[in-house]
Computed example of a mutant assay.
Amino acid sequence: MGMEQMLRPLTPAYSAAVRARAAAYRRGLLRTVRLPRPVISVGNLTFGGTGKTPTVVALVRDLARRGRRPAVLTRGYGRKAKEPVLLAGPDALAPVERAGDEPLEMARRLPGVPIAVDADRVRGGRTAIGAGADVLVLDDGFQHLRVERDLDLLLVDAGDPFGGHALPPRGRLREPLSAMARASAVLVTKLGPKTAELSSIAHVVQLYAPDVPVLGARLEPVRVLTPDGPEPPAILEGRTVMAFAGVGRPEAFEELLRELGAEVAAARWFPDHHHHTARDLRRIRRLARRHGAVPVTTAKDAVKLPADHGVWVVEVEMVPVDGSWDPLWELVPGIVP
């Protein structure tokens, strides 16, 4: 008997526990907290990568362009330290073991924006407000029901939208699909060039959440960091690369490299949030040399490498298919000037 078959009887209990917890918050049996600043939650319904970090980066940048002073509240999943950390740009970074990989990536890409790393998001929110924030972006917040939010954005990956339509162990859903009804909006991420997936995914969303608007976004590369400095993504065209990453859905990274015209000669995937060791890096370099390839990874992985790693790093950003985040901000009047 396989592990999935052994664990399958636990699925109903897991589903019941998830539903009971959500109902307890909805009925006021578990206390929620209203922070004294608007809160925008960005989360997902599945285990694995849906593009939360690139979406948070894009929304924070858009809010800042519009004159707001945003901050990010994040748990810092996978970090070894327990104490709260406040990051504020590349000159105030903490070790990855203390802050976590995703908070460090956000801090590097959002200079000057407070990143409050704290498992207690209420306390983190108060810390961010004390640092001058006038709007709070709650990272991975869809299941963090303790913090009340003004906008609840649910991300769905176009390449694997509904986690096999099942809870663990058969699928990757963190909650039943009916939980989509809690969202203010669903953002379908990682859409292809023709956005063909958007209508079919929107149809499924409407079955469970008929009043929730469905928006779309693409994951677009913005630059490639090389040992000689930043380059446009076109530098990958025709280039033989060896890809490696420790992210939720690494095959999406390989697809992105191929779309940019790179020849992926080899790939090495690690578990999500993997902390790359010196031994890992030696093996990666050896494999790259064997194929005459350039080692290339994600921005999330790069923060866990030594400063002289010599690896090419692809930075991406979530871009709305309509060219503007206005349809999202219009759901919460007053969130932007």
Score class of each variant (00 low, 15 high):
residue 19 R to F: 04
residue 21 R to T: 15
residue 24 A to C: 07
residue 24 A to D: 02
residue 24 A to N: 03
residue 25 Y to W: 08
residue 25 Y to S: 03
residue 29 L to G: 10
residue 31 R to Y: 14
residue 33 V to D: 12
residue 35 L to T: 14
residue 37 R to Y: 00
residue 37 R to C: 08
residue 41 S to M: 08
residue 42 V to C: 03
residue 42 V to R: 00
residue 42 V to N: 03
residue 49 G to Y: 05
residue 56 V to D: 15
residue 56 V to T: 08
residue 57 V to E: 13
residue 57 V to Y: 10
residue 58 A to E: 12
residue 59 L to R: 02
residue 61 R to Q: 15
residue 65 R to F: 03
residue 66 R to E: 04
residue 67 G to L: 02
residue 70 P to L: 03
residue 71 A to D: 01
residue 73 L to R: 13
residue 74 T to S: 10
residue 76 G to T: 04
residue 77 Y to L: 15
residue 78 G to K: 12
residue 80 K to H: 08
residue 80 K to Y: 11
residue 81 A to W: 13
residue 81 A to N: 05
residue 82 K to A: 15
residue 83 E to P: 11
residue 85 V to E: 10
residue 86 L to C: 10
residue 90 P to R: 11
residue 94 A to Q: 07
residue 95 P to W: 00
residue 95 P to C: 08
residue 95 P to H: 04
residue 97 E to W: 11
residue 100 G to W: 00
residue 107 A to Q: 05
residue 111 P to W: 04
residue 113 V to A: 04
residue 116 A to S: 04
residue 119 A to Q: 15
residue 121 R to D: 08
residue 125 G to I: 04
residue 133 A to Q: 02
residue 134 D to A: 04
residue 135 V to C: 05
residue 136 L to W: 00
residue 137 V to P: 05
residue 138 L to C: 00
residue 139 D to M: 05
residue 146 R to Q: 13
residue 146 R to K: 08
residue 146 R to F: 11
residue 147 V to I: 09
residue 149 R to T: 03
residue 150 D to Q: 00
residue 152 D to L: 08
residue 153 L to K: 06
residue 153 L to D: 02
